[in-house]
Design a protein around this nucleic acid. Sequence first.
DNA 1: GTACGTGCAAATGATTTGCGTTAAG
DNA 2: CTTAACGCAAATCATTTGCACGTAC
Lengths: 128, 128
Amino acid sequence: MAVRLTNQRIEILIYLKGNFTHPTAEEVYLGVRKKLPRISRATVYQNLKFLSDKGFILEVDVKGVSRFEPVIGPHHHLICRVCGKIMDFESKELTDYAMKIVKKINDFDIKSTNSNFYGECKKRCGGK
Amino acid sequence: MAVRLTNQRIEILIYLKGNFTHPTAEEVYLGVRKKLPRISRATVYQNLKFLSDKGFILEVDVKGVSRFEPVIGPHHHLICRVCGKIMDFESKELTDYAMKIVKKINDFDIKSTNSNFYGECKKRCGGK
DNA sequence: GTACGTGCAAATGATTTGCGTTAAG
DNA sequence: CTTAACGCAAATCATTTGCACGTAC
């Protein structure tokens, strides 16, 4: 029941802290492995799930693959349907407006105000 | 180059038409198989991709799995982080407002105004 | 008749799980 | 010490691909 603070967890958090490139689990694995060469993918997956359950990091689904980002203030995502690239943008206006509207809906308790917008990078990103 | 109208495509479209339960590819496969018992998963996957590329249906990513819905007007999704359930809701207000704000951002060309909001069903949905 | 589409089976890629071992508290 | 967490390998799940055959046009 006690939550242990292991090197693996610490390094994964350090890797993600201030990293807004939205890495996949595989990218986190490759990155953290530079510090901890013996870490396994299973550990990375387990901890990414653990850390998002605990609310330390955020998971974003794009094209069937989970990507991760540190938790910062509420923000939104522009997601390119072609290359899968994620751009963050902030808009308190939009956040407040969306919250106001969505709060009217019963049966749903908004936990995060992140919203995702789908479209295409203008400089045609030439596929993934 | 010619696009062929096959029974498989027709049945998949019929299955999805007016179906707002956001079925997965597997669910579409099981549903369409009642009409076409010999259809294969590969065909279902290929056609779901084909139909979304053509804009006949819409794909939504939830918890790493693709789900599909017929194309209707712009609308938004409330997605439960716990059980993965998707609720549709319409709000022209929100669509217009979001479009207005996001249009200011360069390098990004909005194709669809669908946006996803994450949270939790109020009646704690007891896992998937 | 000619590709485009299909069905099947095998391949791939992401993620999960079982299990014996290691190490945090 | 005790047991959560790890590392490894195998398993699972969603999705994709290669290929010979079928069929829409």
